[in-house]
């Protein structure tokens, strides 16, 4: 089944995105990793939608895009706020959770 290839590609890209989140320290790059993961799931949604002949997959992907856009706006705003306060965008510098 050829459409499976798309799903496999989506899995691989998702893993790469996850690795980016785990390995990079620049918050902006971490964020891009998250975006990559979201896009990978979108690809899976669209593929499954085509598999079942149902447009709902595309609709969900569309919603993911919109919500992701909102998330980017808020996330980047947080990054900027942190950068202003700490002069750094490293996620390791923000470790107040531990105390």
């Amino acid at each position: 089944m050829e459409l499976t290839h798309y799903v496999v590609l989506s899995c691989i890209l998702f893993s790469v995105g996850a690795a980016t989140v785990l390995l990079r320290r620049n918050a902006i790059i971490v964020f891009m990793g998250v975006e990559l993961m979201l896009n990978a799931t979108n690809l899976a949604f669209v593929t499954f939608g085509r598999m079942h002949g149902d447009l709902s997959g595309q609709v969900i992907a569309f919603f993911v895009m919109v919500v992701a856009a909102a998330e980017v706006v808020v996330g980047l705003a947080i990054i900027i706020a942190i950068f202003r306060a700490r002069r750094s965008v490293s996620v390791d510098d923000v470790d107040l959770l531990k105390s």
Binding site: M1, L3, T4, G49, R50, M51, H52, G53, D54
Partner: peptide, 8 residues
């Protein structure tokens, strides 16, 4: 094993 693709 996916069902045969329906297509859009």
């Amino acid at each position: 094993v996916f069902p045969p693709a329906v297509g859009l």
